[in-house]
Structure formats: structure tokens, C-alpha cells
């Protein structure tokens, strides 16, 4: 079996997911036993015109990126959207409820049009077809390795379809709601080993919604715990503005 060629690309993002991959260190070397990395701007200067798997970090937020994205799609057999920005739009999409003009003015008050941007920051699937996702902000590198491994083996990527509560309970955490906090765990995709709730935080939804979430019930619960509808929507929109929340 020849090793598949993998290229990393970035769009509108903080590049933190790629940094997480570089932090893998020992596993990264092992990973290189099963793949060849042919392009990775953050780690090497080489580039490649051919690759089998494209890993894309970042949202699609500028029309001029469309050409590059299409080129990647044409070249790669498999396109992986890596991290919240690429997977669901993430933090970048937070501004989608404002007009482009307002957003541009906030960025460059004196010369708004210098900030070149579309009306909306979208997930990569808003521009091209995506074959697999690695959720999270940043991605869980173990999950990244698992998904790459599964794809190389010809298996499905293997993302959980159940919510964070499952992993949170397996870790035997006391529910954060018992401390009067609110958490999106019941509607957000697991796979992170409930890292936030297991370390004193709450789930803020960086991994996107599970399929068929019960948004109504989640809203009712958050309301019961004292949040008004604006706060509830704010918390659901932090990462998930572009996630379909209509029932």
C-alpha cells in the first residue's frame, strides 16, 4: 500500500488546529508511517500540486478564496474540514447576523472596505463538497489521528452522533447544571471526551450539533435555569450561528 499524500491548507482561521497537529510530536512521527505530508505551510516550505487528502482549516469568508478551494477539491480525492471554522463556520460566523458594512466598520473604522469579506463567513461545505469533518476548537488531535487512520483504512470517519453528556457521564462528572451553570452538552456532538466539563468548564458548542437535537427542550431547560431567550440564543450561536436550529 503506497502512503497517501496529505496536504494542509488554511483559510479564515487562527491556524490553531494546525498548531495542535504539530504539537502531536511523537504521534506525528508515527502518523508519517502511514501518510506523506506534502504541503503544510505552518511546518514546511515545500508545496505540491498533487495530493490525495486535503485537510482544510478555516471558514470560507472571501469570494476570492473560492477559486483556490475549487482547485483543492479538484485535486484531492478526500477533503477533510478540520476544526470548528471549517466544519460549522465556528467563531467566524458569529458576525453573520450583522451587515457586511457594520462588520467592515468595526474592523477598519477609518477605511472599512480594506477589509475584504463576504456577507457571511461559512463552513467549507458552503463552498465545496466536504467528505469528512474533524470537529472542535481546536481539534482533538487524537480524534484527528483516528479519523485519518479510518480514512486510510477505508472505514467511515467514525464521528460520534451522540452528545457530550454521554462522555461527561462516563467521566462521572456531576452535571454542571447542579452548580447552577448552563451547558450545551445535551445537544452538542461528543468525541472530545467532555474535556471542558471534566475540567471545570461548560460545553459551549465548538463541535456543532448532534443530528436531530431537541433544541426546544434545550431552550426550555436553559430558561428554567435563568437564561432569557437572548442569552440562550447568544450561547447557542457562539460557535453554531450556521448550524440549523429551526425545529
Amino acid at each position: 500500500m503506497s502512503k497517501p499524500k496529505v496536504a494542509f491548507f488554511d483559510f479564515t482561521s487562527c491556524e490553531g488546529c494546525q498548531l495542535s497537529i504539530l504539537n502531536l510530536e511523537t504521534e506525528l512521527l508515527e502518523l508519517l508511517d502511514i501518510i506523506d505530508i506534502v504541503e503544510f505551510r505552518e511546518a514546511m516550505s515545500e508545496k505540491s500540486d498533487t495530493y490525495d487528502i486535503a485537510v482544510i482549516e478555516g471558514s470560507f469568508s472571501r469570494d476570492k478564496d473560492l477559486k483556490r478551494l475549487k482547485k483543492i477539491r479538484e485535486t484531492a480525492g478526500v477533503v477533510i474540514a478540520m476544526g470548528s471554522c471549517a466544519h460549522i463556520g465556528g467563531i467566524n460566523s458569529l458576525r453573520n447576523n450583522q451587515t457586511r458594512e457594520d462588520v467592515q466598520r468595526i474592523v477598519y473604522p477609518d477605511n472599512p472596505t480594506l477589509y475584504e469579506t463576504n456577507k457571511k463567513a461559512l463552513p467549507i461545505s458552503g463552498a465545496i463538497t466536504v467528505d469528512a469533518f474533524v470537529p472542535g476548537c481546536p481539534v482533538d488531535v487524537k480524534e484527528f489521528v483516528k479519523i485519518v487512520k479510518n480514512l486510510v483504512l477505508g472505514k467511515a470517519p467514525g464521528l460520534p452522533t451522540y452528545p457530550v453528556c454521554v462522555e461527561c457521564k462516563m467521566n462521572e462528572n456531576t452535571c454542571v447544571y447542579e452548580y447552577g451553570k448552563t451547558c450545551l452538552g445535551p445537544i452538542v456532538r461528543a468525541g472530545c471526551d467532555a474535556v471542558c466539563t471534566s475540567n471545570g468548564g461548560v460545553c459551549i458548542g465548538c463541535r456543532g450539533l448532534i443530528p436531530n437535537p431537541n433544541i426546544n427542550s434545550q431552550k426550555d431547560i436553559m430558561e428554567k435555569y435563568g437564561l432569557d431567550m437572548n442569552l440562550i440564543m447568544d450561547s447557542m450561536n457562539l460557535f453554531m450561528t450556521e448550524e440549523p436550529k429551526e425545529v
Binding site: 452528545p163 454521554v166 457521564k169 462516563m170 452535571c175 445537544i187 426546544n216 427542550s217
Partner: peptide, 13 residues
Amino acid sequence: AERCLSCGSCIMV
């Protein structure tokens, strides 16, 4: 069922 979040917590515990 209308209220159920299908979160699986009941079963995990």
C-alpha cells in the same frame, strides 16, 4: 418524548 434530549445520561448512570 417531547422533552427528552436523547442525551443518554439516564442510561450512562
